[in-house]
Design a protein around this nucleic acid. Structure first.
Lengths: 215, 215
DNA sequence: CCGCATCCGTTTCGATACTG
DNA sequence: CAGTATCGAAACGGATGCGG
């Protein structure tokens, strides 16, 4: 791999050399969730080959973004972990996420969703001004399984976190519908009547849902 | 080109599909400076081939980040211009720049510098708290020519802009030295004694220079 | 000269198979 | 589990050509 891909003394070009290769940013995204094994990362990134993932992890290690840690027996495996320099990419990744949400719709067939990725997207949409004090469990139905996140409104704005804790209401829909509701393109009551959304819990909560996000 | 490179419903993956190809972010960086002709962009990006630049501009147009405008005679040429969606990338690019500055040093041989890129880097380093009310012209000497930006401290923090207006002092040095001064790795007085930096104007200003940036 | 299209040798990628 | 080996396909950089 050409180490010096762009002959420019420019910070953006330097960033692109380190994290601009195919898959690299998505690998960092996974490692931001915590140390991960080779197979764990590969399992999340459908389509990446073992050889390319090896190359990328090696390059990230050389660039000082990732360290490899050998776990003691009985674990006896290797994990890849972000360094401080790697974690420092988080603001840039969040900015790219905020920009990228506009392209999430339309949802494409056979596309995979993980709750971590859904959380990223909803966080980018979340309002920072005071929002209705409601809590929701957002469940997105996939062909093979469901993923869920928790969305909570409050005086400090909307927060998005892992699902688990009880909530006022649970919304169940496919990805396209849920993104429509979040982005304000779909009206909750209409989606409910149309049978695209299932609501468990407090029925009055549903109308507040769009107010938790920037339309 | 595979349009759907990552089969993931993730905003970061979507962003990477649109701007993650080689050269693409650097093309957007150039167009953020204003509408540009094909040849202008190509002239700034040493190493990009005409065919790849054509592909990228076409892809950016299809993605809605760029529009092509045909100028009337006597100009009679085409310019590429960012749309609102394209300009919306600026925060993400700035975040990547802020992260990338750490890799600017060491400067590599035969690397090109443009004043716009220098401005990006110094802006990322600029302090946002009140800084000494001094103005500097920063001139970076290259083998073939010199580039310059203007750095001004004040109660609202440091601002970096195009060179031109007069300033309290002018610093002239090569790129490596200048980045050393900005990053706090070099002490101004020592660099001056060592002959690595030339100072025109108020000699007392020099000691304030590092205070304009986050070390 | 400007904006591309085409050709060609090299690099990189993705899929599969294989190994300690 | 964590990669390595291999191989055809795609992408890339550089050169050339060509219509406007």
């Amino acid at each position: 791999m050409a180490r010096f891909r762009y002959p420019q003394l420019c910070a953006l070009a330097r960033a692109a050399e380190v994290v601009g290769e195919r898959w690299t940013l998505l690998i960092v995204r996974e490692l931001l969730l915590g140390p991960r094994r080779f197979t764990d990362v590969k399992g999340r990134l459908d389509g990446v080959s073992a050889s390319v993932l090896t190359q990328r992890l090696l390059a990230l290690e050389e660039s000082g973004l990732v360290v490899r840690r050998y776990l003691e027996p009985p674990a006896a495996s290797t994990v890849y972990e972000l360094t401080a320099a790697g974690r420092a990419l988080e603001p840039a990744i969040n900015a790219l996420v905020s920009w990228g949400v506009r392209a999430l719709v339309p949802v494409r067939p056979r596309e995979r969703v993980e709750s971590d990725w859904l959380r990223l997207a909803l966080t980018a949409w979340a309002r920072r001004e005071p929002t209705p004090a409601r809590s929701f469990t957002v469940r997105v139905r996939q062909p093979r399984r469901e993923v869920a996140v928790r969305v909570v409104g409050g005086p400090d704005g909307t927060t998005v976190s892992e699902a688990g804790a009880p909530s006022d209401a649970t919304l169940i829909a496919d990805a396209q519908t849920m993104l429509g509701l979040v982005s304000g393109m779909l009206v909750p009551a209409a989606a409910l009547r149309g049978g695209h959304v299932r609501l468990d819990g407090d029925p009055r909560a549903l109308d507040d849902f769009p107010a938790l996000f920037n339309a």
